[in-house]
Design a protein around this nucleic acid. Structure first.
Lengths: 235, 235
DNA sequence: CCTCAGAAAGCTGTCGACATTATTGTCGAC
DNA sequence: GTCGACAATAATGTCGACAGCTTTCTGAGG
């Protein structure tokens, strides 16, 4: 791995599972449209429509849809013929996702806090940078929603990525993707909650820096359960 | 849901994600052969070989392989052309899986213990039955390895299934499948550990029955970490 | 005996065809 | 006007073909 380039802006490759070029292309396109809400819930995803729209054959489209299904962003219904739909959203699902993230990221944070001092400090350094960027963006007069969204996601992703637990990482990815849908759809309607979010992130960061595993875990869990409650008010 | 039938012997459908008939067939066949070790780790899974062996076209085989990859039982390597292999096994992976199961099932057990008394008792009843069957099989002169394996899996699966958390359930399934490989391969070489396993299961059961969420969570975590250590001695 | 270039073979990526089935639309009977 | 049967339509399941890339085999040269 070359760590020379100034920051390849390693966009999260969405999930694990290597696929061929066209499949990845179709997958990324559809996935982005679902997360951003451009494809509304329960919309029927017809293979040939996507074939025409994306300019690829049925095979890559089919594989992309199956990836999305395993990620939980699409669901297939029907007895004989299985038809694909954009997964529905609900308060109940949102709560389940938040609880799952609380558990997974809570464990990740606890691991980070258990690292030796030197390893911990380098992790804390990375988290600090992301946190600072997030707080800085939030403090602007007209914060870029896109950038807020990105920095918030990066903060949580960094916790899991640094936990050095590949199964935890690959388990976390699809769950996180499902939550992004809710964050994107409802996030920018929550003006007064940025302050809470920042404060909670700071608490997580502090607990990790001081090496308090239990505190870190509780802080992460509280953060997600609070975030879930905040999102719920808009649902 | 009709609870009339005496016990449809609801075999775990392996994982979530509805697929068509031939795909499910191919998937089940290959999956069973991987878990039972009949397909050794790192074996190259060639599409046309499986096509010939299973008597279906390339499409179902391909989809089955992709399901297995998303489950972690197969891995795809290669720069341009992606070739599929049976996922390798290692002590490190086994530990990660056990840790993940400890977290997920620990949370499930804590939820069960938090249920109201009546809901809890019906769950405890089911667990008791499975536990009794497991203990009974273990006490026989020549216990059926197949049956021990099945009852052990059922006990853990029942905990998660009863937690009434669909995301937790679908997240747990593939992780559990990966652990089954290790259990099947090494389980029957661990003669003296059945006693420990039974004792730990009893402790889990007791904690749930008494409604002690924290105890239940700790008991489940301890059970998996101990099981991991037991398995490790044979690796 | 080893090395490297060229040739051959083996697999996968991608595509569209064909068959099958669910769904929708239509028409007639009551 | 409503219901039901039948026909038309649309979408998916499944398959094999073709092309292209990797790997492997072969053989000549050192």
């Amino acid at each position: 791995m070359s760590t020379l380039r100034p920051q390849p802006r390693q966009l999260p490759p969405a999930s694990n599972g290597t696929r061929s070029r066209l499949t990845v292309h179709a997958y990324s396109q559809i996935r982005a449209r679902i997360i951003r809400g451009e494809l509304a819930q329960n919309v029927h995803l017809v293979e040939l429509d996507l074939v025409r729209k994306l300019g690829v054959g049925r095979t890559p489209v089919r594989e992309a849809l199956q990836l999305l299904e395993s990620e939980g962003l699409a669901v297939s219904k029907g007895g004989g013929r299985l038809r694909m739909f954009v997964a529905p959203m609900s308060a109940a699902e949102q709560l389940e996702i938040a609880e799952m993230l609380a558990i997974l990221e809570g464990y990740a944070a606890a691991r980070l806090a258990s690292f030796a001092a030197d390893a911990r400090s380098s992790v804390v350094e990375e988290l600090k940078q992301i946190h600072a960027a997030f707080a800085h963006t939030a403090s602007m007069k007209a914060p870029s929603e896109e950038r807020l969204f990105e920095k918030h996601r990066d903060f949580h992703a960094a916790i899991v990525r640094n936990a050095r637990h590949s199964l935890l990482l690959s388990t976390h990815a699809p769950v996180s993707a499902r939550m992004e849908r809710y964050e994107w759809l409802y996030g920018h309607r929550l003006p007064g909650t940025l302050r809470s979010s920042i404060a909670e992130h700071a608490e997580i960061l502090g607990a990790i820096r001081r090496g308090r595993a239990n505190e870190a875990e509780r802080a992460v869990r509280a953060n997600w359960l609070n975030a879930s409650a905040r999102l719920k008010t808009v649902l």
